[in-house]
Amino acid sequence: MTTKPAGIKRRKLSDEVQDQLLAIIQGGDLEPGDYLPSERELMTDFEVGRPAIREAMQNLQRMGLVEIRHGERPRVAKPSIDQMVGQMSQTMRHVLSHSETSMTHLKEARLTFEVEMARIAARKRTLSDIAFLRQTVSLQTAARDEAEDFMNCDGNFHRAVATISGNPIFAVLAQALFDWLAHFHIDLVRQEGMESLTIQEHDAIVDAIEAGDERASAEAMANHLNRANKLYHQKYSA
């Protein structure tokens, strides 16, 4: 019995153009912020029409590799971890909204990550770091009656703890993990009494970090996040 070979799928013309543009961007001759050739120049060089050029450029823009502004030639985008994570957000929210297992895995990943961030913060903290953490908690306390502001301050606190590590990727990840989860259980911190408890737990984390106690810092962060996880399960498993 012979097997009929699968048909070979033709690539879209814009995909071919995209590969050529990627080669230009990654070739090393252009720096972030440099202009790419004009649309007309690319049409001539690649011998393709305007639609293929524009579709390829839009794909590269979605990938965060190209900046497109009205009336200007496209530029090579400046590397940005924040931008990269932002582009992932809608996809992540789609995944989380359709998979309880993914939500559980994300909470577990955040717990492991944040506990280690607290441990590192206790080891590396400076006086200015502690002052900034105290200020962040103070701002959150002042925003306790404003749901959106309270949540923003909450996220800022966790990012501030991660920032002490000195690794900017950790700071961006802390914010992303918080934002992805907050999108689904913002109501948990708005239950009566939860705002005060959140602030108390943040204060305890800062106290431990200020004391330079890595174990106590990790435990304070774990207690804080495990409390939130427990409330989540109580609310959605009932």
Rank of each mutant, 00 (worst) to 15 (best):
M1L: 13
T3E: 12
T3I: 14
A6W: 02
I8T: 13
K9H: 07
K9I: 15
R11Y: 07
K12R: 12
L13G: 08
S14H: 07
E16D: 08
L21C: 08
L22D: 02
A23G: 00
A23F: 09
I24K: 04
I24D: 01
G27T: 05
L30V: 11
D34S: 09
Y35F: 12
L36E: 02
P37Q: 03
L42V: 05
L42G: 02
L42M: 14
T44H: 03
F46T: 03
E47Y: 05
E47H: 08
P51F: 06
I53M: 06
R54Q: 14
A56H: 02
Q58W: 06
N59F: 07
L60W: 03
Q61V: 13
M63W: 08
E67L: 14
I68A: 12
E72H: 11
R75T: 07
V76G: 01
V76Q: 01
A77S: 09
A77H: 03
A77R: 03
K78N: 09
K78P: 00
D82H: 13
V85R: 08
Q87G: 15
T91L: 13
M92Q: 08
H94P: 00
H94Y: 15
V95I: 14
L96S: 03
L96Q: 05
T101A: 15
M103L: 15
L106H: 01
T112H: 06
T112G: 07
E116N: 15
M117W: 00
A118Y: 01
A118H: 00
A121V: 07
A121P: 02
R123C: 14
R125G: 06
L127N: 10
L127S: 14
S128Y: 04
D129K: 05
A131F: 05
A131M: 08
F132Q: 10
F132K: 12
R134H: 10
Q135P: 00
V137D: 06
S138E: 12
S138G: 11
S138W: 06
D145I: 09
E148P: 00
D149F: 10
D149G: 10
F150Y: 06
M151R: 09
G155N: 04
F157G: 02
F157N: 02
H158D: 01
A160Q: 05
T163V: 09
I164F: 07
S165H: 01
S165Y: 02
P168H: 08
P168E: 10
F170Y: 12
F170Q: 05
A171G: 06
V172Q: 10
A174S: 10
A174L: 11
Q175F: 08
A176K: 01
A176G: 04
W180Y: 10
A182I: 06
A182G: 03
H183G: 05
F184Q: 03
D187G: 11
L188A: 08
V189C: 13
R190S: 12
R190Q: 15
G193M: 07
M194V: 11
E195H: 11
T198P: 00
T198D: 07
Q200F: 11
E201K: 11
E201T: 04
H202K: 08
D203R: 10
A204W: 02
V206G: 04
D207P: 00
A211G: 04
A211E: 04
E214M: 11
R215Y: 09
R215T: 14
A216K: 08
S217W: 04
A222K: 10
H224E: 02
L225I: 13
L225C: 05
N226K: 13
A228C: 07
K230A: 14
K230D: 13
H233V: 14
H233Q: 11
S237N: 11
A238W: 08
